[in-house]
C-alpha cells in the first residue's frame, strides 16, 4: 500500500471533496454534487462515506467504524482495515475516544461531543425520490421549497395505517430550510441529530452527493401536530447489560423462534457490562 497516497485518494481529489464538504456545511441539508471516484470498495458499500472520511482524516485522528452499531460486522471491519492500511491512523471501538466515526445505519448511544465528526454512509440522498424520479424536477422543488409532497406522504400513511409508516431513513427538516434524508438510521436515532455538538457529514458515492449538518443545527423530524413524531420502544431490556434506553437487536436463539434482545451498539453495551461487573 506504500504506492498509494495517505488515505488512498490523491490530494487534488481530497481538496475537491473538502470544497464540496465546506459548501455543504454552509448550506445545511443541501445536497452538493461531487466528482465521486471509483474506490476499491463496491458502490453501495460505503464509497461515499469512505471518500468523505479519506478527505478529512489526518495522522492524529482516532477512527471508529461501525455498521449496524457494531464494530465487528464484516463491512465495518473491512473499512476500518482499509483506513488502517492506507493511513496508519489509530483505530478504536470506543465512541468517546474517537475523533472521527464512520457509520452505517446507526448513531452511537454514547452522546457525541464538540470536536467529533460523524460520517454517514448514504444509499439514496434524495428525499423526494419516492414521488419524483427525475433529478431535474427534484432540484427545482428543493430550490423553491416545494415540500408539500413530503407531508402528503405522511398523510397517506396515517390514512392507510393510522400512523406514519416510515421506520428508518425518516425525513427531517434541517435548520428550517432543506428537507434531508438522514440515511437509513432507525427513527430511534433521529433525535440525536437535533442540535448535535458534533459535525455530521453525509456521503453518497454512487449518487455523487455530499451534505452536512453543522454542529448545533436544529433538525426536526417531519410530522403533524396531531400525529407527533415518536420513536421505537421495546418491552424487553438488553439481555446482556439490562439497558432499557438503547436500540435493541432481535436475535433468534433456537429452532422454535425463541428470541432475546441485545443492544445494537456493541461499545455501549460492553462498557455497561464492565461497570456492572
Amino acid at each position: 500500500m506504500s504506492a498509494y497516497n495517505f488515505a488512498y485518494l490523491d490530494e487534488q481529489t481530497k481538496r475537491m471533496i473538502r470544497r464540496a464538504i465546506l459548501k455543504a456545511i454552509a448550506i445545511p441539508g443541501y445536497q452538493v454534487p461531487f466528482g465521486s471516484r471509483e474506490m476499491p470498495l463496491s458502490y453501495g458499500w460505503g464509497t461515499g462515506g469512505v471518500q468523505v472520511t479519506a478527505s478529512v482524516i489526518g495522522p492524529d485522528d482516532v477512527l471508529k467504524v461501525i455498521d449496524q452499531g457494531a464494530d465487528d460486522t464484516t463491512n465495518a471491519v473491512s473499512i476500518r482495515h482499509f483506513f488502517a492500511r492506507t493511513t496508519g491512523v489509530r483505530t478504536t471501538t470506543r465512541t468517546d475516544e474517537a475523533t472521527l466515526i464512520q457509520t452505517r445505519h446507526r448513531i452511537p448511544e454514547t452522546p457525541l461531543c464538540a470536536g467529533q465528526i460523524m460520517v454517514f454512509q448514504v444509499p439514496i440522498p434524495e428525499p423526494l425520490r419516492w414521488l419524483e424520479p427525475r433529478e431535474t424536477e427534484t432540484r427545482t422543488m428543493h430550490a423553491l421549497e416545494e415540500y408539500g409532497v413530503m407531508h402528503v406522504r405522511l398523510y397517506e400513511d396515517i390514512t392507510q395505517h393510522g400512523r406514519v409508516a416510515t421506520a428508518y431513513d425518516y425525513p427531517v427538516r434541517v435548520n428550517g430550510r432543506y428537507i434531508m434524508r438522514p440515511s437509513p438510521i432507525p427513527k430511534f436515532d433521529n433525535p440525536k441529530l437535533d442540535r448535535s455538538p458534533a459535525l455530521l457529514l453525509f456521503g453518497a458515492g454512487r449518487e455523487k452527493r455530499i451534505y452536512a449538518v453543522p454542529p448545533w443545527t436544529p433538525v426536526k423530524s417531519l410530522d403533524f401536530d396531531d400525529h407527533p413524531f415518536t420513536i421505537e420502544r421495546w418491552e424487553e431490556a438488553c439481555a446482556l447489560c439490562g439497558s432499557r434506553e438503547s436500540f435493541l437487536d432481535e436475535v433468534i436463539v433456537d429452532d422454535k423462534g425463541g428470541r432475546i434482545f441485545v443492544c445494537s451498539d456493541t461499545d455501549y453495551c460492553g462498557r455497561r457490562r464492565e461497570h456492572l461487573a
Binding site: 453501495g44 458499500w45 464509497t47 449496524q68 464484516t74 437487536d249
Partner: peptide, 16 residues
Amino acid sequence: GFVQHLKLPHYVDFQS
C-alpha cells in the same frame, strides 16, 4: 454495487 449491497447487514432497519 448497489444491487449486491443488499447482502450487507440490514438488521437494524429490519428491526425498526
